[in-house]
């Protein structure tokens, strides 16, 4: 465990806490894409199946359990508790365009042609694009609450921090994970536009608004 990865994981944890904080304080899921949240549940469930047969560390198991339960809880909040504040009519990204290619890619690129390894690969590819419905929704509405943008920034920072972690592991531990690295770079790149507006507007105290 190096610091990049630790800070990356902490950023991921912070993003989920920010998301829950946003929902609880505004008592609303407005501005959040249900599709993105449902994709994250899929990502965590397919990747963390190894909880049942592969022990890495207590830290690892606790984090995995937290990510699965919290993401399911967010779905519950969106579909049940705060359902009236959810607006599916602006959450229009076609997720089948993401799921199909991810299935295909995981069948081609995996470390072993086993059910568990293909699912792992699938989850890596799916995570890299899971944020797209959310970013698409942001693009459509053109604005967002500050707290929602902090959530997205923490989520993007988590992915960005994994890149120096991989560079560190390559040089210091002689470890490389080409599938995770490729997908991780794609995932981080998707946040570039968002980060530009976040740094130039939200962190300067202005509203998150996209140019018309």
């Amino acid at each position: 465990m190096n610091l990049f990865r630790l800070f990356g994981d902490m950023s991921h944890l912070a993003s989920i806490l920010l998301l829950l904080y946003k929902i609880q304080t505004t008592r609303s899921v407005r501005g959040l894409s249900f599709k993105t949240q449902a994709l994250y549940v899929t990502v965590f469930v397919t990747r963390y199946l190894d909880l049942f047969y592969d022990y890495v560390s207590l830290y690892n198991s606790v984090m995995k359990t937290f990510f699965i339960t919290s993401s399911c809880y967010v779905l519950y909040l969106m579909k049940k508790k705060y359902r009236p504040t959810n607006d599916p009519s602006i959450d229009t990204f076609r997720v089948e365009y993401l799921l199909g290619p991810c299935v295909l890619l995981s069948l081609i690129f995996n470390y072993r042609f086993t059910f568990a390894e293909i699912l792992w690969s699938f989850s890596i590819f799916l995570e890299s694009v899971a944020i797209l419905p959310q970013l698409f929704m942001l693009q459509r509405t053109g604005e967002a609450e500050a707290i929602t943008t902090h959530y997205l920034a923490a989520l993007g920072a988590y992915r960005a921090l994994y890149i120096p972690n991989w560079i560190y592991r390559y040089w210091m531990e002689d470890q490389v994970d080409p599938i995770a690295v490729t997908a991780g770079i794609v995932q981080t790149a998707l946040y570039v536009d968002f980060f530009y507006v976040y740094f130039t507007k939200v962190l300067q105290g202005q509203r998150f608004e996209l140019p018309a």
Partner: peptide, 10 residues
């Protein structure tokens, strides 16, 4: 040469 990682990341 670097070896492939175990799945020890989150």
């Amino acid at each position: 040469d670097p070896v492939e990682t175990k799945h020890d990341e989150l």
